[in-house]
């Protein structure tokens, strides 16, 4: 319904449309690309874990939270820049993910969906509460020396931190894709995702592959968290929001390739940046629009924009 309204309204309101200058359109597009890429980082680890392990990890947002607070803690206590500290945050989250997988997830890996839902939901509550215990529920934000600075081209403004975050997000997507496609271990991960018994027959230790996959998923969530806390104020209640967004993004973009997360992130970003500016829509509908898009994608292209038929 909403999307239909989007299509019909600009025609009726043509006079308004003319007022929108070229620069404003360019700014909206820049904002969209920056946000969409960042969303790719939010969904990347979620997509990997879902695609390979067939687990919808409801604790994904909790990992983002831990990443955000790790970066916050490192910045305020150790004065490590969140971007420079990214490898450290990712390493810590990788270890956390590895342990969680080995201790908890491995026990339910072949269990029905509901069991993994319950387990990861429980983990989400547990981790988020520990974070709240350690950092209280106050909103936190990071202000670096370069916060607020950016590239300016005429009236076009590109903030440094957002640009950097978007670039890192695209870089992580490309790195994950290359790792999966070009390395022996990456191929073993893909093979395990496609056919676990055949992978075992190749001599692939699938318990290790799952631990590695889950660790990578957590590390990528941590990276997203560290970048988010630099851009937005953060509090421990936000984990669930990002789990939900990651879910929508992955459904939009499709499983089976990291680039699906980027495609989904860009589509999701569209709903938040471009659509609210269309005459007659206004802000506040972003979630409704994103979910409407998700429903459309599920109807017309159930495997997602870039999704592969993964379990052939």
């Amino acid at each position: 319904m909403l999307v239909l309204a989007v299509r019909s309204l600009p025609v009726r309101r043509l006079p308004f449309h003319r007022e929108v200058s070229a620069m404003l359109i360019a700014q909206v597009i820049v904002n969209w690309l920056l946000l969409g890429s960042l969303y790719a980082a939010v969904a990347l680890g979620f997509s990997l874990v879902w695609g390979i392990m067939n687990i919808v990890n409801l604790a994904h947002g909790a990992f983002i939270l831990v990443g955000a607070y790790t970066a916050y803690w490192a910045f305020t206590q150790l004065h490590i820049d969140p971007f420079l500290g990214l490898p450290l945050t990712m390493l810590l989250l990788f270890c956390l993910g590895w342990v969680v997988q080995y201790v908890a997830i491995n026990r339910v890996i072949r269990a029905p969906f509901l069991v993994t839902f319950l387990l990861t939901f429980g983990l989400d509550l547990l981790i988020a509460d520990v974070v709240q215990l350690l950092f209280t529920s106050d909103r936190r934000s990071i202000n670096t020396a370069y916060s607020g600075f950016g590239l300016t081209l005429g009236t076009l403004h590109i903030p440094f931190d957002r640009l950097l975050a978007a670039l890192i997000a695209v870089l992580l997507t490309a790195a994950l894709s290359l790792f999966l496609q070009r390395t022996r271990t990456g191929n073993a991960i893909l093979a395990t995702g496609m056919d676990r018994d055949a992978a075992r027959l190749m001599g692939i230790r699938i318990d290790r592959i799952y631990a590695l996959t889950f660790g990578l998923g957590a590390a990528l969530a941590g990276a997203a968290g560290a970048m988010l806390v630099e851009l937005y104020p953060f509090d421990p209640s936000q984990g669930g929001v990002f789990t939900l967004r990651a879910f929508v993004i992955v459904v939009l973009g499709g499983l089976g390739t990291p680039w699906g997360a980027l495609a989904g992130g860009l589509v999701f970003g569209l709903a938040e940046t471009v659509v609210p500016l269309l005459p007659g829509i206004g802000p506040g509908y972003d979630d409704a629009i994103a979910f409407a898009l998700m429903v459309l994608v599920l109807i017309f292209r159930p495997r997602g924009i870039l999704g592969k038929a993964f379990y052939a």
Partner: peptide, 22 residues
Amino acid sequence: PQGRRLFSALTVEENLLLGAYT
């Protein structure tokens, strides 16, 4: 195995190389 059970989204060579995973 029965039914081949190839890794269908990987190339032939990638499948063969996974055979040498050990």
